[in-house]
Design a protein around this nucleic acid. Structure first.
Length: 262
DNA sequence: ATGGTAGACAATCTA
């Protein structure tokens, strides 16, 4: 049975519960993975989503920051979370569907403004987070798995509006791209979005600080859908719902979709 | 080189 999955950094699930509802009504993914919920789990409006057919939710939360959730039409079993780099943040949750597919939902640390671990502790934490992800996948060798989320790195030259101008900007520095590549390789993850859309500029995030985000179009592809090699050929129909960036009081991220015939 | 916006939560911190 094919199922469609979406990932969206919502930047407050309570403030934007109406936008989540709009996405669920209009696009109706079977599974929606959210990041930056910025809410304790018990304050996520789960009943509002359940009323739309999303009767299953697994989540990790904390007050004010971070937070990840998976809303699903299909039964999903909570199979745990990881606290990479020992930050004590709600940045990962994993669930398993009845077809045996495991879904990892990640919110990788943004890493602060200065791309130097000596000058900026947050940058070091981001690199350490990715290193521990890599080591975990290297030991675990995931199969029949999908990894989504805001990975806060745009790895390819055509994942940013200007490769040259962003080389020293956190999210696109060579050391971050290298760390993300090592994590991807360790789990034998295939980038499903780029499998489906191999050529051209592709963005999922536009800063709030731009005067006219749409006209300037200075975006970055920070949000990703990966799958393990054993199921990667089941993935198709990837797309980014750029329209959502223009919705009323939007998140600065747009949802990324993929469908899997499994 | 700088400052630009947004959200949580009540002082700044984070992105």
């Amino acid at each position: 049975m094919p199922f469609t999955l979406a990932t969206w950094n919502i930047n407050s699930v309570r403030l934007r519960a109406g936008l989540v509802e709009k996405l669920l009504r209009e696009e109706a993914p079977d599974v929606l993975c959210l990041q930056e919920c910025k809410s304790p789990v018990e304050k996520i409006p789960a009943e509002q989503f359940a009323a739309l057919g999303y009767g299953h939710m697994i989540a990790r939360g904390q007050k004010g920051y971070n937070g990840v959730a998976i809303l699903s039409k299909l039964p999903i079993e909570d199979v745990g979370d990881m606290d990479f780099a020992g930050l004590g943040h709600a940045r990962h949750i994993a669930g398993r569907l009845e077809n045996g597919v495991t879904i990892h939902n990640f919110y990788v640390p943004a890493g602060g403004d200065v791309p130097d671990r000596e000058a900026n502790e947050k940058f070091g934490q981001k690199l350490d987070y990715l290193t521990e992800m890599r080591d975990w996948f290297h030991g675990d060798r995931p199969e029949k798995s999908i990894l989504v989320g805001d990975l806060n790195i745009a790895p390819r030259e055509d994942d940013v509006w200007s490769h040259k101008q962003l080389l020293k900007v956190v999210s696109h520095t060579p050391i971050e791209v290298d760390h993300l590549g090592q994590t991807q390789e360790a789990g034998r993850w295939v980038d499903i979005t780029r499998q489906d859309i191999p050529d051209g500029q592709l963005y999922s995030w536009w800063s709030y600080r731009a005067k006219d985000w749409d006209a300037a179009d200075k975006g970055r592809r920070l949000d990703h859908v990966w799958a393990t090699a054993d199921i990667s050929n089941a993935g198709h129909s990837s797309r980014i719902l750029r329209d959502a960036r223009g919705w009323e009081q939007p998140s600065d991220h747009a949802p990324v979709f993929a469908t899997f015939d499994l």
